[in-house]
Design a protein around this nucleic acid. Structure first.
Lengths: 192, 192
DNA sequence: ATTGTTCTAGAATGATTGATAAAGAATTGA
DNA sequence: TCAATTCTTTATCAATCATTCTAGAACAAT
């Protein structure tokens, strides 16, 4: 009962996600969100509670579609080190116009001022770390020793490298240099 | 001629730098800056032109004191790989209360939305990269080959690792894990 | 058709933003 | 002492902010 929704929730979340990736949380106003989603301010508040509510929904959408989608596409279970390599290289395929950016990296920085980390940032970093660890243990050298301590440590190291690449991409670094850095890292990882 | 300045420029820049590191650029208001610097709004505009002017001065102060100071303290010329290792480990010594944060990393992300990178971000990243490269060539393995291509590539890889560590620190990651990741990275670098 | 409910649209809300203007206070040179 | 100049303070500006309110529109069940 009651009036039916006119807007397509996925399209709205995609639009909101886009502008949050580009500009961050603070820099985006409700008016910006109206333009990005096609919804009027009143509808936004009705459907999502407030700006933070829409952001949270958009962040969830990012983790579900962009992050998990990228993992499934480039580094599915069984793809091992080669999958991880391609996952890293895929970061370079984003357009240079600043329209995108990793929401995880950006929000880890923007919301990092307080004491406790943002739960969605924590979840996303955890997913990346777990994925790295799993693919690493698929590689022979990391599976040999009983406990996965080595894989854990390498996963953390790779997670830092991954986040740093996204910072440098956003900072305008030369992509050819970054590609070479990724290749070096994984070539070395394969010789272990 | 004219009235003399009452405020200590260094203290003002330090206060402004502090709050910008903690909260970012956008999230800091002129009223916040009044509290952080002790100056009244009018004086801020008189002395620095506008908010961006004070930020720019504070960023310059950061690069001059914090960044260059850290490099000189932990990785001075001649300190080689060991100097770099301690430079990286020094990132973990920051307090956890979120009062600090790397202005370079944070601004690379916050200002990264546009097309061209922020000049001070670019300069700071350049200084780090150059420092990494120099210390690497002091190590035998990197100095052996004629051109410094290998050192260049490793410097970029380390720069990404460095920025990523700062993201993870800000994201609330466990410092013991990060310390281990740093040790692993440099142990491996030393065996090359 | 009427009622209850949900959604949308658009105009308000008060608070906060970055910035400016004017007046007072402190200094130097004449 | 008195201009001239520079800094500090205070008050205030229009613009924008996130949010709320109100009225109307669209649906389901009665």
């Amino acid at each position: 009962m009651g009036r039916t929704r006119e807007f397509d929730e996925e399209a709205v979340l995609t639009g909101a996600m886009h502008i949050f990736r580009k500009q961050g949380y603070q820099a985006v106003s409700i008016r910006d969100l109206e333009e990005a989603t096609g919804l009027k301010g009143g509808s936004i508040y009705h459907a999502f509670g407030d700006k933070a509510g829409l952001f949270d929904a958009a962040f969830g959408h990012y983790n579900r579609t962009v992050l998990e989608g990228r993992i499934e596409r480039f580094a599915p279970p069984g793809s091992g080190l080669q999958g991880l390599r391609e996952l890293f290289l895929s970061l370079l395929h984003e357009p240079d116009d600043g329209s995108l950016g990793c929401l995880i990296t950006n929000m880890a920085v923007e919301f990092g001022g307080g004491v406790n980390p943002h739960p969605r940032v924590k979840a996303a970093l955890g997913l990346l770390r777990t994925t790295f660890r799993s693919r690493l243990t698929e590689a022979s050298a990391f599976a040999r020793d009983g406990d996965g301590a080595k894989a854990d440590r390498t996963a953390t190291r790779l997670l830092a490298f991954y986040q740093g690449l996204l910072v440098l991409i956003r900072g305008g670094d030369d992509k050819a240099d970054l590609r070479q850095a990724i290749e070096d890292e994984f070539n070395q990882l394969e010789t272990m």
